[in-house]
Design a protein around this nucleic acid. Structure first.
Length: 424
RNA sequence: GGGGGGUUUCCCGAGCGGUCAAAGGGGUCAGACUGUAAAUCUGAUGGCUCAGCCUUCGCAGGUUCGAAUCCUGCACCCCCCA
């Protein structure tokens, strides 16, 4: 990685706006850069992916990354007014969220060596501040006119919901984070999505006024689809980086299903493939879109980064099963892993021994809402047992139909699966 | 306050005494095709012990051999005149 980090970011389309006199020159020597992550949940999701990967790119280019967890800013980020009790409770949740995100961040950055990453939590320095002290030391140097002029503020002031004093203060807290990191870690560059522009410039301005130093900012794109919708959401909720919340298989599948018009940007924004490799994928996509090499490569790269080699292998294996032929000769553990995301139902083993009508099984598994629907599904060829189509209405499941020791896989249509587990 | 119109199965919307579980469209589900895409095509779409039975057409009664369809009362919605 001898190329200048800005060139690298540029061709990837990761540079939206830059703040500061000459960022290019500034980044010619090793610097300390930071990006913040709010602990709104106990795991990061795809929405944080771009800044996370950008930090990695900086690190690979020889700069030191700081991942900041917003333990303090996360406390006021939520606009809805909450009672005293719930604030206390949410502090507990917050602690867990911070812990969870800390754990994840550690997997993405290298903490060793000269440019080893640093993990900080702004709660650690914000907790020392009294309200009065903050107003005297920091607030005094933040001109209201400038803050009111921010796009982010103007939009909210004109909206129905308005803007509370607390939320208005958010940008000042984040601004101070930047100042603090500059003082304590010689951090000079802040990264963020376009929505962070206002917050970043507040920090730059504050540093100039307080310490007379020049800081820099760089905003990147948000991960959206061609039609403007934010990516990283499915019918089942956000796509998380935590394997407990989004299995490696589900994660892999999410990227496999990215639309052609979005996959190019995803490759540039999120993978570490070089320019040449991506150009090849672009060409392949133009000539033979049905091969979907771009999607496969994207899913592979990202699953490997997030879930490791073993996670990728599991996702691939599960994919084979999901789209492959008959399911047989597997053990309970393997089935449970592969179908981790699939709803499962428990039934007494006796039901199977006495013969369980397929119609009933489909209803019990929750795949059909009524027996009438189950009947129709079977007649129309939409019912599968262990991936084998069964069209006989009279089909009765027996012990011999088990795919493993105690489980059996039902499927309705192309990809709606349900697991039936039989206990004694 | 006076006059008129409406309330139908997930949604929109036909139906105006039996042939109505109720046209048509949308949605949804399944099948074919396909790139685990889009589009398209086909079928299905109240429940059940399914060639039969049961429960649905704002709510409660009534008339009829028989009502979503007629009558009475109630509730909600819309329009016109004050």
């Amino acid at each position: 990685m001898t190329a200048h980090i800005l060139d690298e970011l540029q061709w990837r389309g990761l540079v939206e706006q830059v703040a500061g006199p000459d960022l290019r020159e500034h980044l010619a020597s090793p610097r300390v850069v930071y990006a913040g992550f709010d602990p709104t949940a106990d795991s990061l999701h795809v929405g944080s992916f771009i800044p996370l990967m950008t930090l990695r790119r900086f690190q690979m280019a020889g700069h030191r990354p700081i991942a900041l967890i917003g333990g303090a800013t996360g406390m006021i980020g939520d606009p809805s007014g909450k009672s005293e009790e719930r604030v206390l409770l949410s502090e507990e949740v917050l602690r867990q969220n911070v812990a969870g995100i800390e754990r994840q961040l550690q997997r993405f950055l290298d903490f060793s060596g000269d440019s080893g990453a640093i993990l900080v939590n702004n709660y650690d320095w914000m907790k020392e501040f009294s309200f009065l002290q903050f107003l005297r030391d920091i607030g005094k140097h933040a001109p209201l006119g400038m803050m009111l002029a921010k796009e982010s503020v103007k939009a909210r002031l004109e909206s129905e919901s308005g803007l509370s004093y607390t939320e208005f203060s958010y940008m000042l807290l984040q601004g101070y984070d930047f100042v603090h990191l500059a003082r304590t870690h010689q951090c000079t560059v802040q990264l963020g999505g376009t929505d962070q522009w206002g917050n970043i410039t507040v920090g730059i301005d504050l540093a100039r006024r307080l310490d007379g130093i020049q800081l820099y900012g760089l905003t990147g794109p948000l991960l959206t689809r061609a039609d403007g919708v934010k990516m990283g959401k499915t019918e089942r909720g956000a796509v998380w980086l935590d394997p407990e919340k989004t299995s490696p298989y589900a994660f892999y599948q999410y990227w496999i299903n990215v639309a052609d018009e979005d996959v190019g940007r995803c490759l540039r924004y999120l993978t570490e493939l070089d320019q040449e490799a991506i150009a090849q994928l672009d060409a392949s996509r133009a000539e033979a879109p049905h091969l979907r090499e771009s999607q496969k490569k994207l899913a592979e790269e990202l699953t490997r980064v997030v879930h490791g080699e073993s996670g990728l292998a599991a996702a691939r294996h599960a994919t084979e099963i999901f789209f492959g032929a008959e399911i047989e000769d597997l053990d309970d553990q393997a089935l449970a892993d592969i179908f981790a995301d699939v709803p499962s139902s428990q039934l007494p083993k006796a039901r199977l021994e006495e013969g369980l009508p397929l119609i009933d099984a489909l209803v019990e598994a929750g795949l059909c809402q009524s027996k009438g629907e189950a009947r129709r599904t079977i007649q129309q060829g939409g019912a599968y047992v262990n991936n084998v189509r069964r069209t006989d209405l009279e089909t009765t499941l027996r012990s011999s139909d088990l795919a493993s020791e105690s489980m059996l896989v039902l499927r309705k249509g192309k990809k709606k699966y349900a697991l039936l587990r039989f206990h004694s």
